[in-house]
Design a binder for these strands. Structure first.
Length: 153
DNA sequence: GCCAACGTTGGC
DNA sequence: GCCAACGTTGGC
């Protein structure tokens, strides 16, 4: 059992969009970073929990919790020439990009902002999210950090 | 909208 | 294999 943080721009896909999706479930497409891909492929497991993080918005931060509910499978958007995620170089018989399905669990009681997480850097040492220049859209969260963040809810 | 930080690309 | 140029991310 591992813990994660996944970023989404709320204008694109918000925690409410996930909550309102059929079965409260959606595939997490559009990952185009090898490190993030490797996390999806190698380290995520069905049943893992992830913080849902809103990025590139007025107050970036953690807004909810979701669960990984599928194995990794090819992200279909890489083969769709109309998609912004189209990748002409991805071999059809060995797709470069994978995704998993995530399911809505709940919203956090309040938005736990990036600012606040940075203020608690002492308790969250090593958390990828607050490392300088971090741009990963999927990153691991240790059990200790997970528990601590939830205790601040 | 700006721009720092980072990942990727491609010439050599 | 190096590294400059470029495109993207994402906080501010």
């Amino acid at each position: 059992m591992n813990y994660w943080l996944i970023k989404s721009e709320p204008e694109e896909f918000s925690i409410d969009d996930l909550k309102n999706a059929p079965g409260k479930k959606e595939h997490w497409d559009g990952i185009r970073n090898y490190q993030a891909r490797n996390f999806i492929r190698d380290d995520m497991q069905k049943g893992d929990l992830a913080f849902f993080y809103h990025s590139n918005c007025k107050t970036p931060g953690i807004v909810g919790i979701c669960e990984v509910v599928s194995d990794a499978y090819p992200d279909h958007t890489q083969f769709d020439s109309n998609s912004r995620y189209y990748d002409a170089g991805s071999p059809a018989d060995d797709p470069r990009w994978l995704m998993r399905d995530v399911k809505y669990r709940r919203k956090t009681k309040r938005l736990i902002s990036l600012t606040e997480l940075k203020e608690k850097a002492g308790k969250l040492e090593g958390l990828a999210l607050i490392r300088r220049g971090n741009r990963l859209s999927i990153m691991p969260v240790s059990k200790a950090h997970w528990d601590y963040i939830l205790s601040q809810e």
